[in-house]
Design a binder for these strands. Structure first.
Length: 582
DNA sequence: ATTAGAAGCGCG
DNA sequence: AAAGCGCGCTTCTAAT
């Protein structure tokens, strides 16, 4: 038994559950203990649509015994509570749990109503959902109490059939906690300084002008056209730009920046500059600012579990792709601080933990795993170590990485055996699992058919080549899946633990209800941003040190939760500042 | 006229 | 250098 047992021992037995659901025009609740779901005693809470009444009832119950709230979809239920100033400690998000459980226990399962796409519903269908008027929108019945109770019961059965139910329980709890965090972060928002963003844009692109491009960008475009000897060519159309480049004697096969950078021609420098400006303007320019930042807050839609590996995705606002240059626009409110933290080399550390690779864990025992690998003698430089490690986890076969990975195989055989085995399983059409049991998707039927055709007696050489390439592609995916997915689990555990620690720090100071962070978070430290291996917490200045300590404690707890006493460090770079700029 | 896909680039 | 994984978004282009 490798999973540290303390994390959940006793908790579920002691924490009561309350199932929320809709019944006709009402929102109703039914109590549920750990092993049985009470029937026939549903309590009416509020008319559907009466969020204030719903929130009052939930708040009272939360105050009384802080039950685990069991509901269909956090993205549908929780924003309404947060808007009314009510936060909950724990929930079971049945939609997210369903996806994990079904794929884990019956990987080939066909579509099921609970496999519904993640709730864009938060914005799109939510008003309809709790309207008093009955709606006939497909899939909404999943929010009914009956359906919710049925699903909760079915999930108990699936959980019992999981390969390792205790680990699976941890994963499900972490996934649900992540859903709470996502809703809370959207409610609170990321403090964003519009004037600073504007200054960054003006600095990079030149002053904004009424009709056309910003001034400096226009000048740069003119220099590009000058160097191309083509005064009218569109720089934003790759095919036309490619033709112009070739006419000017730059023999490239694409207009991508890495290919351009290989050529020594007067057009290269201004063109690369133009591309970077164009990117900034179109992706995060003034119109992005107008659309996504209101009252000093950036509120992206996070999509927990949106990536097959368990990473979060985002929808709208490009939350997960904010360029580094703009991080200076993340700005704490007056009297507050941004506490930022990121994990150094999370994925290889997680790999060392999964594989119980003690030599790799030793190499990871400083702040910099790559230097540790150099010290192990596997490679000569830090740069080589990085290339080798990334190559090992991504399945590189050529170039420097292809050359360096075999050296890692000699020095860290256990870690390499784990990813190599995952790759073989994928190539053979199998599914792989993360440390806590998230299962990779089964190969799609076309892939299976392609492999079968290639091994038939009438297969052509081309069939075989194509099939082999597809098999290797899938092997690289499953190789990376176990590592990326387990890293996502570590991060979820970190977030979940941190969230509760921050709540325990409590509200501070005078009433700051004027804050744009909303009724729940205007007076207390709160998670404001999360990106795979990095968090930003917005905290009152006098709590910033406590928050930094909480972030570190939560990382330690996450490491123990996944890997128990195995000696693998997860060192953090923690900063307390008025902005998130590095 | 709308839409699906590719190119390109930002993030981890 | 951009090789090897996972994403989202904008723009342009080709297909419907």
């Amino acid at each position: 038994m490798r999973v540290h047992p303390r994390a959940h021992r006793g908790v579920r037995a002691l924490t009561p559950s309350v199932v929320l659901g809709r019944a006709g025009d009402d929102i109703v609740a039914v109590a549920r203990d750990a092993d049985a779901i009470a029937e026939g005693d549903a309590e009416r809470i509020a008319r559907a649509g009466d969020d204030a009444a719903l929130a009052r009832w939930v708040a009272a119950r939360e105050e009384a015994d802080a039950p685990r709230w069991v509901w269909s979809d956090t993205a549908v239920w929780y924003p309404r509570l947060l808007a009314e100033g009510v936060r909950v400690a724990r929930c079971d998000d049945l939609r997210l749990r369903h996806r994990i459980l079904h794929h884990a226990v019956t990987p080939d399962a066909s579509a099921h109503p609970w496999d519904a796409a993640p709730a864009e519903s938060e914005v799109a269908t939510q008003p309809a959902l709790f309207d008093v008027e009955p709606t006939r929108v497909a899939g909404e019945s999943m929010h009914d109490l009956d359906a919710t109770v049925d699903e909760a019961r079915a999930q108990q059965g699936l959980l019992a059939r999981a390969e390792d139910p205790s680990r699976m329980r941890l994963l499900l709890a972490a996934e649900s906690a992540g859903a709470l965090v996502a809703a809370e972060m959207r409610a609170a928002g990321l403090p964003w300084d519009v004037r600073r963003h504007d200054a960054i844009l003006t600095e990079a692109l030149g002053p904004r002008r009424g009709g056309g491009l910003p001034a400096r960008m226009e000048e740069t475009a003119a220099r590009v056209r000058e160097a191309l000897g083509d005064p009218r060519v569109s720089l934003d159309s790759p095919p036309r730009l490619l033709r112009a480049l070739r006419n000017a004697g730059v023999h490239v096969d694409s207009t991508s920046k890495w290919e351009l950078a290989e050529h020594d021609h007067p057009v290269v420098a201004p063109l690369l500059e133009y591309k970077s400006m164009a990117r900034l303007l179109t992706a995060n320019g003034w119109s992005w600012l107008d659309e996504w930042v209101h009252e000093g807050r950036f509120r992206p839609v996070y999509v927990p579990g949106g990536v097959v590996t368990g990473r979060w995705a985002s929808s709208g606002g490009g939350a997960l792709q904010i360029p580094r240059a703009l991080r200076g626009a993340v700005r704490a409110d007056a009297g507050w601080r941004i506490v930022s933290a990121d994990v150094a080399q999370l994925e290889p550390r997680v790999l060392a933990g999964m594989a119980r690779d003690e030599r790799m864990a030793r190499a990871a025992a400083g702040a910099d795993l790559y230097e540790g690998i150099v010290a192990s003698g596997a490679v000569a430089t830090r740069a080589e170590a990085k290339i080798a490690v990334l190559g090992a986890m991504y399945g590189a076969t050529t170039g420097d990485a292809g050359r360096l990975v075999p050296r890692l195989r000699k020095v860290f055989p256990a870690a390499m055996a784990l990813v190599d085995a995952a790759a073989r399983t994928g190539e053979d059409g199998g599914v792989v699992r993360t440390w806590l049991g998230r299962t990779s998707p089964a190969p799609d039927p076309a892939w299976v058919q392609q492999q079968a055709r290639a091994s038939g007696s009438d297969a052509s050489a081309a069939d075989e080549t194509r099939a082999r390439r597809a098999a290797r592609d899938r092997g690289r995916f499953t190789r990376n899946f176990v590592v990326q997915g387990t890293a996502a689990e570590w991060s979820l555990a970190w977030l979940a633990d941190l969230r509760l620690r921050l709540a325990a720090l409590g509200a501070v100071g005078a009433d700051r209800s004027a804050s744009a962070s909303g009724p729940v978070f205007s007076r207390r430290p709160h998670l404001a941003f999360f990106l795979h291996d990095e968090v930003l917490v917005h905290a009152p200045a006098d709590l910033a040190d406590d928050v930094a300590a909480a972030i570190r404690s939560a990382a330690d707890a996450a490491g123990r939760l996944l890997f128990g006493t195995f000696p693998i460090d997860f060192p953090l770079d923690v900063r307390i500042d008025e902005s998130a700029a590095k």
